[in-house]
Design a protein around this nucleic acid. Structure first.
Length: 305
DNA sequence: TCTCCTCGAGATCT
DNA sequence: CTCGAGGAGA
């Protein structure tokens, strides 16, 4: 891998920045070339200038790229070369914070071309709108620019042309700023354990409408305690409702089965029984149709479904 | 059960 | 970069 002395990757929504986008002949800064440069300067949240130029590469533009961008060999026949135009582009950017969608892609192309032409390292601090999207719109199905714009109700024009994508990114940045203001800031990324879905019985809904009435799970109400080995608690609850059973968070008069996972930790600090286990035993003594079963028995139930 | 870590895989850009 | 799996320690 190539070592680049780049600026800092910031998590913020700057009031002053330059939004950039490049069109290239491919994904590799080493083997592919820039065929269009675009930039929009933002000062105090207002556009104060833009830069746009097609670039004539050495050799031909691959057909797949022309299909994607609409940039053809004819269009760049009279365009300047990267050597002609890059100094002006870098001057336009100046020392501003650079903003872009997956901005490392664009910066890497700029960095390598600038280095090759003796124009010094591109060491500007930068903001990646894809990262902002992860923080502010964590439920997005994907983080492509189209999806981000759609979620933020930002119109997209001239997609896959440099200036068009700059404009889309600029509009998304403004919308993300509003969203951040509403949320009181940019949220921290979820901790690894926070990425797992919480096991709240009220959130579990069946994924099917066809149940087997002969299943030992059908029509019965399950509650879990301890740490399950074969699946998360949410997954186990899902399996129950998918088999026509019900789930609860705690042991009640409606509970038929208490499934016990690994309770070693509690066993080490308590009398070996969780509160749910004590309550289940209590209800069983009072004649309730409730049984305490192991995770293995529960798995057997699933197999009979 | 809660907290926190590492590792590999997948995503995104043209 | 983020996410999911899996494990360590309390």
């Amino acid at each position: 891998m190539k070592d680049r002395i780049k600026g800092r990757n910031l998590i913020e929504i700057p009031d002053n920045c330059v939004i950039i986008d490049l069109e290239t002949t491919g994904y590799s800064p080493e083997y592919d070339q820039i065929i269009e440069l675009g930039a929009i300067r933002i000062e105090n949240r207002v556009e104060t200038g833009r830069f746009n130029s097609l670039i004539r590469p050495r050799g031909k533009i691959p057909a797949v790229i022309s299909a994607k961008t609409g940039i053809t060999n004819d269009m760049v026949a009279d365009a300047p070369t990267i050597e002609d135009i890059l100094p002006a582009y870098i001057e336009f950017i100046g020392s501003s914070i650079i903003v872009g969608h997956n901005v490392s892609f664009d910066i890497n192309f700029l960095y390598d071309n600038a280095e090759r032409l003796g124009l010094g390292p591109i060491s500007n601090d930068h903001v990646n709108t894809m990262r902002l999207a992860s923080r502010l719109l964590p439920d997005l199905k994907n983080r492509r620019l189209d999806s981000l714009a759609s979620a933020l109700e930002v119109p997209t024009n001239n997609r896959h042309r440099a200036l068009g994508d700059c404009q889309t990114t600029a509009d998304c940045l403004a919308a993300l700023r509003e969203l951040a203001d509403r949320l009181g800031g940019i949220p921290e990324p979820p901790k690894p354990w926070e990425r797992y879905e919480k096991a709240d019985a009220r959130d579990i809904v069946p994924e099917t409408t066809e149940f087997n009435p002969d299943s030992p799970i059908y029509g019965r109400t399950f509650v879990f305690t301890g740490e399950l080995k074969s699946f998360t608690r949410a997954e186990a609850m899902q399996k129950v409702v998918n088999a026509g059973g019900n789930v609860g968070n705690g042991v009640t008069r409606a509970t038929n089965y208490l499934v016990v996972g690994n309770t070693d930790y509690y066993a080490s600090i308590n009398g070996g029984k969780t509160g749910k286990m004590k309550k289940a035993e209590d209800l069983a003594l009072k004649g309730q149709d409730i049984a305490i079963i192991t995770e293995d028995t529960f798995i057997d139930f699933l197999a009979e479904n």
